[in-house]
């Protein structure tokens, strides 16, 4: 059983078909990349998978369970987390608070118990603190925990988004162009980070433009163009796929 199974998903906005009858499987423990030119429907795919848009047709299953009808926060509870192409940290919350609110979906005590601060709540809060520390350490932002998140530099806001997503304790992490706007050095660090995420047993679905990043970290690459899947294979095989080269990469060939 695949962790995530996408079957014949189509997404239309008015007359525009952003995703066209797309199917794919993300296996547990792999780093699965989705590439394609701008406007190919990559971000739309993530939005459909996380429940931002309901798909026009087709189905999505997570751990064998249909999740099409679930709201975004319900999917998070099942174990899906994401980052955003355009940064969406909570600007006026501190770095620590950003990660903390994302941990709340793993808490169980109710509002009343929370107000009364029962012993269970105190224990739970200690656990939340530990998880938040761990997530911040993981991406290397522990020393910035008290900063207002909007004052972080761009690349670190991306790391904060990853820490925030990790704090929801996901089984599947969807990274929407995590390398956008990063320097070469930062991108290399990101590649290492993505592998470390996978090494913790978290499956990664990665969308990016940066071929070097994709080709060095991915186990499987799905290529989409105009919302259609045109190839799916190992990075090495995809690079050589004549259809990919012709239809998507054009005469310039792959920039590696």
């Amino acid at each position: 059983m695949a962790l995530l199974e996408v079957s014949n998903v189509t997404m239309q906005f008015g007359g525009l078909t952003a995703i066209d009858n797309l199917s794919t499987r993300v296996e547990k423990g792999e780093i699965h990349a989705v590439i394609g030119p701008n406007g190919a429907g990559k971000t739309t795919l993530i939005n459909v998978l996380t429940g931002v848009y309901p798909a026009t047709s087709g189905s999505v299953s997570f751990e064998g369970v249909r999740i099409d009808g679930l709201r975004p926060y319900e999917r998070v509870k099942l174990g899906m987390a994401r980052t955003f192409q355009n940064l969406r940290v909570f600007p006026s919350l501190s770095v620590r608070e950003n990660v903390t609110v994302s941990q709340f979906c793993r808490t169980t005590s109710g509002v009343v118990a929370n107000t009364l601060r029962t012993r269970a709540v105190v224990r739970e809060e200690a656990r939340v603190r530990d998880r938040v520390d761990e997530a911040l350490n993981f991406v290397g932002l522990a020393d910035k925990a008290g900063w207002p998140s909007k004052s972080l530099p761009y690349g670190q806001q991306r790391l904060l988004e990853i820490a925030r997503a990790m704090a929801t304790e996901p089984k599947l992490l969807l990274l929407d162009e995590p390398g956008a706007g990063m320097t070469l050095q930062e991108t290399q660090g990101l590649g290492v980070l993505i592998k470390r995420i996978r090494d913790r047993g978290i499956t990664v679905l990665l969308i990016d433009h940066k071929m070097r990043l994709i080709m060095t970290v991915s186990d499987v690459v799905t290529v989409v163009n105009f919302g259609k899947k045109i190839a799916e294979d190992t990075p090495a095989a995809v690079q050589k796929d004549p259809e990919v080269v012709r239809a998507y990469l054009g005469a310039r060939g792959l920039r590696t």
């Binding site: 996380t50 931002v52 709201r71 975004p72 926060y73 998070v76 509870k77 987390a81 994401r82 955003f84 969406r88 940290v89 909570f90 600007p91 006026s92 919350l93 608070e97 950003n98 903390t100 609110v101 994302s102 709340f104 979906c105 793993r106 808490t107 509002v111 929370n114 107000t115 925030r164 997503a165 929801t168």
Partner: peptide, 23 residues
């Protein structure tokens, strides 16, 4: 409080909050 911070998160970015597991 958890509720208070969640309210702030929703106020700042409803969609992102939803995608961070906040109801």
């Amino acid at each position: 409080t958890r509720l208070g911070r969640s309210m702030r998160a929703v106020a700042q970015d409803q969609l992102a909050a939803s995608l961070m597991g906040i109801n």
